[in-house]
Amino acid sequence: MSVSVLSGCRQTMPMKCSTAAGRAAREAATVELFELRARTPDLVEQQLLLERVVELNLEIAGGIAARFRGRGAELEDLEQVAFLGLMKAATHYRLDANTPFIGYAVPTIRGEVKRYFRDAAWTVRIPRRLQDLQGMVSAQLPALEQELGREPSSEELAERLGVEAADVEQALAARGCFNTLSLDRPDDDGLSLGDVVADQDDGGVDRLEAVDMLQPILEDLDARERRILELRFIEGWNQTDIGAEIGVSQMQVSRLLRRILGELRDRLAPLSVAV
């Protein structure tokens, strides 16, 4: 593949996909890039194509990162981890696996983000200098409170310790960062963290991921099969009315639905493995 071909691909590939057609186009363009990469012996071109796959699917990684925001880690950090997961997925994806790339990438990216939380994001780490100063503040605070008859200011603590007031303020702000607290520990209003944090994931993101995984599989169905699914699950028709619409009996509709759904489940099974 020449550089000019790569440039042409760069101009035609969709970067933002808000519709089913756009997501299908992105998946098709991704497959084309993988096929081009498999055919070229040039290592530089292989790397360029791999980077293009990652660039094309950044929206997927960004969406997964956004799902985990507000859980104790900065969104920028989550995005970086998700992008690394996307690169990992692109590097290890195999065309002969008969699995859409998104079906492989989504659990891989999600797994990387979950590992990040497990390994790095549950306990806040502060500089050693502030850890030491925090210990000094804790040691001097009770005596100074007793002498003054009130809570001392940052300036008074700094004077007692012989340090800058700004450093004392940072150490005070970092109190509680060394240990994680129980979800059941009540706050000042008597509510635990479990009471105020939703116990369910954002279903909207789950639906978006499901649509992305289903889209390329649904494309393999013929027009009548897609029409049956549309009437049953989008329009809400019963089997008798569907049969009258397409010219078959209710029993035939029932058999068709069982077969179609069974095939979809078989195709989706390898995509839903938890990471």
Rank of each mutant, 00 (worst) to 15 (best):
S2V: 08
V3I: 12
M15S: 04
M15P: 00
R26A: 06
A28C: 14
A28I: 11
V31S: 00
A38G: 04
P41T: 09
D42P: 09
L48V: 04
L48G: 04
L48M: 13
L56A: 00
N57S: 07
G63K: 07
F68N: 07
R71Y: 10
E79D: 10
E79S: 07
F83A: 11
L84Q: 01
D96P: 15
T99G: 15
Y104S: 07
T108L: 08
T108F: 02
T108N: 07
E112K: 02
E112R: 02
K114M: 11
R118T: 15
A120R: 15
A121R: 02
S138M: 14
Q146V: 11
S153G: 03
E155A: 14
E155Q: 08
E159S: 07
V168S: 00
L172T: 03
A174Q: 07
S182K: 00
L191Q: 14
S192Y: 11
G194E: 09
D206S: 09
V211A: 15
M213C: 09
L218K: 00
E219G: 15
R224K: 14
E225N: 06
R227T: 05
R232A: 10
R232S: 09
E235M: 11
G247C: 13
R258G: 13
D266Y: 05
D266P: 01
L271S: 12
